[in-house]
Amino acid sequence: VISVAACGVNFPDLLFIQDLYQVRAPRPFSPGAEVAGVVSEVGQGVTAPRVGDRVIGRSGWGGMAEKVVVAADRCTPIPDEMPFDHAAAFIFTYATAYYALHTRAKLGAGETVLVLGASGGLGAAAVEIAKALGARVIAAASTAAKLSFALSKGADAGLIYPARAEDKSDLKALGELFKEQLGQHGADVIFDPVGGPYAEQALRCAAENARYLVLGFTAGIPRVPLNLALLKSCDIMGINWRTFVMSETMKSDENHHQLFELYKAGKIRPAITETFELKEAAKALARLADRTVMGKMIVLMPRTDATP
């Protein structure tokens, strides 16, 4: 049992309450898949974590509550240097971005990465991770404010794409924007949590032997002509961090260790742009739905004796 201090707000929370996620939560439930707090009870036979330990818990759902029950192997110790608010905004975005860029794409120093949705929680984490791995990062966002935010996270350059790209002229203009920033070589890695009409134009700008990372569809599920993958000799990779954590636990734990080292070195830092009290949690989810959020939001729990 974790006495929750803070709960991260993530796009899957919005999908959960609409029954659009690949897993359906039993009713009744509260959303919230990523919590940080103090272990207040453990079950029989549990040796780690221990009561009093500060942990990040991957709850799946139920995290927007004062207490939540989490399997022991879904808890990760929090470094002493990391406060609860950073911890609640850490694992989902950074571990997903690190798994995508390091484990799957094997991003190398000097390569060019195009990050779509670069101002969101996942996109901003990808910008920082890619820079920490020595890459050149091009950020793509839908407004000047969002692009400025992505640049503040370390992106080398960026572009503003239209909030809607539906007709042929819009798509052609979008393709030209990508080409202008990426140059003749193109992008070695494309990090895409957005999808929609942006995906095909981004793929057209892939470099030879590029890796296109599919992470989500905030703008809708795209239909991409697969001849582009053939022409570019590129890989299209589905990035399902959830199944990686479940099936390759040791590799996942090692990734977490490396991320904490990057945090201690000051190379990555959660950008918490909004906080909400528990009674305002619905407002946080509404903010996700309107696609105006930059960085990460967290829900803070009422303070108790068990939550320092």
Score class of each variant (00 low, 15 high):
residue 98 Y to I: 00
residue 126 A to M: 08
residue 39 V to A: 07
residue 205 C to Q: 13
residue 146 K to N: 10
residue 213 L to M: 11
residue 266 G to W: 08
residue 247 S to V: 02
residue 37 G to I: 09
residue 83 P to N: 15
residue 19 D to C: 04
residue 238 G to K: 10
residue 234 C to W: 00
residue 53 D to K: 08
residue 169 S to W: 11
residue 248 E to N: 09
residue 189 V to P: 02
residue 57 G to W: 03
residue 34 E to Q: 12
residue 257 H to E: 13
residue 226 L to N: 06
residue 124 A to E: 02
residue 104 R to T: 13
residue 131 K to T: 07
residue 272 I to W: 04
residue 268 I to Q: 01
residue 20 L to A: 13
residue 186 G to L: 04
residue 151 L to A: 11
residue 296 K to F: 06
residue 76 T to C: 15
residue 140 A to D: 04
residue 242 R to D: 01
residue 218 T to S: 13
residue 8 G to T: 08
residue 49 P to E: 10
residue 40 S to H: 06
residue 142 S to R: 14
residue 236 I to A: 01
residue 144 A to E: 11
residue 39 V to Y: 02
residue 78 I to T: 03
residue 60 G to W: 01
residue 241 W to R: 12
residue 257 H to L: 10
residue 298 I to H: 08
residue 8 G to H: 07
residue 295 G to F: 10
residue 107 L to M: 11
residue 207 A to W: 02
residue 178 F to G: 08
residue 67 K to T: 15
residue 306 A to M: 01
residue 285 L to T: 06
residue 158 G to R: 09
residue 105 A to Y: 02
residue 266 G to R: 04
residue 118 A to Y: 03
residue 62 G to M: 03
residue 143 T to M: 00
residue 270 P to D: 06
residue 54 R to W: 04
residue 287 R to W: 05
residue 144 A to G: 01
residue 53 D to G: 09
residue 40 S to C: 14
residue 170 D to K: 13
residue 282 A to H: 15
residue 125 A to N: 13
residue 152 S to L: 05
residue 107 L to W: 02
residue 214 V to M: 13
residue 229 A to I: 06
residue 194 V to I: 11
residue 201 Q to N: 06
residue 255 N to Q: 14
residue 272 I to E: 04
residue 264 K to P: 01
residue 236 I to G: 00
residue 19 D to E: 10
residue 74 R to L: 09
residue 53 D to W: 05
residue 222 P to V: 14
residue 189 V to G: 00
residue 144 A to N: 11
residue 200 E to W: 04
residue 10 N to F: 12
residue 3 S to R: 13
residue 100 A to D: 02
residue 32 G to A: 10
residue 6 A to M: 04
residue 3 S to F: 01
residue 81 E to D: 12
residue 216 G to T: 07
residue 32 G to W: 14
residue 276 F to V: 12
residue 40 S to I: 12
residue 117 G to H: 05
residue 28 P to E: 01
residue 108 G to N: 13
residue 297 M to S: 15
residue 48 A to E: 12
residue 31 P to H: 03
residue 236 I to H: 00
residue 182 L to H: 07
residue 121 G to F: 08
residue 230 L to H: 11
residue 19 D to H: 09
residue 7 C to S: 15
residue 141 A to C: 09
residue 218 T to G: 02
